[in-house]
Design a protein around this nucleic acid. Sequence first.
DNA 1: TGTGATATGTCAACATCACTGACATATTTT
DNA 2: AAAATATGTCAGTGATGTTGACATATCACA
Lengths: 172, 172
Amino acid sequence: MTRSDQTLSAVPDKPTASTAPMPDIALIELVFFGYRDFVGEPDRVLARYGFGRAHHRVLHFVNRRPGLTIAALLDILGITKQSLARVLKDLIEGDFVEQRAGADDRRQRLLHLTPKGTALATELAERQGRRIAEALAEAGPESRETIARFLMGLIERDERDHIRAMITKKFP
Amino acid sequence: MTRSDQTLSAVPDKPTASTAPMPDIALIELVFFGYRDFVGEPDRVLARYGFGRAHHRVLHFVNRRPGLTIAALLDILGITKQSLARVLKDLIEGDFVEQRAGADDRRQRLLHLTPKGTALATELAERQGRRIAEALAEAGPESRETIARFLMGLIERDERDHIRAMITKKFP
DNA sequence: TGTGATATGTCAACATCACTGACATATTTT
DNA sequence: AAAATATGTCAGTGATGTTGACATATCACA
């Protein structure tokens, strides 16, 4: 009730957190603000088309793995069919994405970007890539592997192999 | 239309992106997945109370700066009064946050966490702090400053001073 | 003292992106 | 032919954000 129990997380004054290690509040906040601006720039570009972050994720992953099936995309995004359906509808109607029947399994709708979709996905990737490059320059020339290990360390342990494979793999 | 124009952003086969530098797709995806899991753990804790990320942000910043005014909080969060109102209502009704009339300016409602709010904010900060500490351990012992500079480099240039001040400052 | 500025609260309406559950259709597998 | 699979679609809900308008309490100043 008094001021003394408004523990300042950065520097707790003993009582509560004497056992727990002090959280690194500065880094927690930097991750928050860094991510905010990392996605803020694409958000502004997407807004020109009436798109949001969900559209960006679809564009990104279809660009990465042309010929992706709906099921595989749902799996990567971790969302439901209905959530995907709406954004995919927007992207298909706007001629950014197209579906082709699978050659071997004709039930499948293989997703591909149109030239227009490729152009948008490329613009977004270039903007985010530029921002990353700038941040790496700030961090120092040899920092890339350090940063990559840090980011991988934020990811759930069970998922790391899966994600390592995904970001490494080249899709035809 | 053929496979050849589904440019793989990671390694564009020349035509489109011969001038633009190649975006670092691996790091772009690592930032995405890293952030997803960084907030995923707090999300699960908050869900026990029927809270979401918006509640987390309020808890965090009120914990950081006890006595924060509504206006200052709106400014930090960059959302509208109405968006904040709903979340704040939940937190006040649940006895996580309380408002006190300002001593000098009685129009102001100074925000404070209750002991219950402090406990929750502390739990969330400790979980995120632990994850950060783990990730730093993966990145290497001397990596903290490198990581901090990288994250700061993701932030809009005009905002960096402002945020540097915010994360450095100690609030009474 | 009174008037305008300020801090906050609140109402109505709306958009985006997520969810669940249920059911339809086409196609492949057995 | 029947079961399983891949996808599409309908109806309803929730969390979080938006805008614009207006009400109230309090402060600051002429």
